[in-house]
């Protein structure tokens, strides 16, 4: 058992985790953040993507004990019903969502990109989401959404 102290979606969070507990498990089962999905548990689908210090990581292959002292973000960080993030608005407008299972991870990968690159090319966008599988959309409308959100969003603020 380890006590971890980390920032989760902007809030300091202290939690007891098992030594062999993944971040995915801790987030879903202990912190009730069900937006982080399990798709394969071996780092080959991207559904469990979270941001650690603003970079995408697979929470299924991250031990929860490793995030102590770090900043962790899930899709809840981006927006809520009252104020959607421009990326979320764009995902709606451009039809980037079908079944919705890959969507939280996809949004986080996109958010991480836009933090570093305010004006990404389509190739930049495709590379940034190349670790997030989507079986429904063929990615086209996702890329379109990210491209169109890029101009509108000041992710740093």
């Amino acid at each position: 058992m380890k006590k971890i102290d980390f920032t989760l979606n902007g809030k300091q969070t202290i939690l007891d985790v098992e030594d062999n507990e993944t971040l995915l498990h801790a987030l879903r089962e202990k912190l009730d953040i069900k937006s982080v999905k399990e798709g394969c548990s071996i780092g080959e689908c991207g559904a469990c993507t979270v941001l650690i210090d603003n970079e995408p990581h697979y929470s299924c292959l991250t031990l929860a004990s490793k995030v102590s002292g770090h900043d962790v973000k899930t899709v809840e960080f981006l927006g809520d019903e009252n104020l959607l993030h421009p990326l979320q608005e764009a995902f709606i407008t451009y039809g980037a969502v079908q079944c919705g299972y890959c969507t939280p991870g996809m949004l986080l990968a996109a958010y991480s990109l836009l933090l570093k690159n305010e004006h990404p090319t389509d190739t930049d966008i495709k590379e940034a989401i190349s670790g997030n599988l989507c079986r429904c959309t063929g990615y086209i409308q996702i890329v379109e959404a990210i491209r169109n959100a890029a101009g509108l969003c000041k992710c740093n603020s």
């Binding site: 879903r28 069900k34 937006s35 982080v36 999905k37 399990e38 899930t74 899709v75 809840e76 927006g79 809520d80 019903e81 959607l84 979320q88 995902f91 709606i92 407008t93 039809g95 969502v97 919705g100 299972y101 969507t103 939280p104 949004l107």
Partner: peptide, 21 residues
Amino acid sequence: SNRKRIDVIDKVLGKPVFAGD
């Protein structure tokens, strides 16, 4: 019309309850 999906706001917020949730 290109009406937005009726389930989409929940989906971009990560809110839908899938069976495993």
